[in-house]
Amino acid sequence: MANKPLDIILAEDDEDDRFFFKEAIEKVKIKTDLTMVNDGVELMEYLKNPENGKPHVVFLDLNMPRKGGIECLEEIRANKEYNDVTIVIYSTSASDNDIEETFVKGANIYIRKPNDFKILQKVISEVLSINWQYHTSGLNKEHFVLSI
């Protein structure tokens, strides 16, 4: 498993944020295969396409045109097939209550978009690392919640 690259999707409408994310994830030690979509509708279409296979991690921005992150989260979690897909909310800071709501709806990780590139790099690295630990060390995925 360690040798195969992680399949990662980022759903993000902001071009700058996609740019930063791409740059940051490339510097992470863990090998990744990044796909980027512009909004929720594109994301769901991508996931429904059988040619694309199941991603390991989905990064979701909450505020997107056409279909928001929460809607995507609910749709993905409604499908049992995607049970073991790690969902990371990648959004601007929100209240603790809003963050808790995403966890209750099935998100595993909530990332408040950092304002420093180094921190972004660190955060992505941490997320992928912990995700890897959960996969390789047989940890209880039900308990997989992390707020960064």
Partner: peptide, 14 residues
């Protein structure tokens, strides 16, 4: 206001 500000900060960090 957070989004543009955050991006300004990001560019500064870059």
């Amino acid at each position: 206001l957070q989004a543009p500000l955050r991006k300004i900060q990001m560019f500064i960090s870059r």
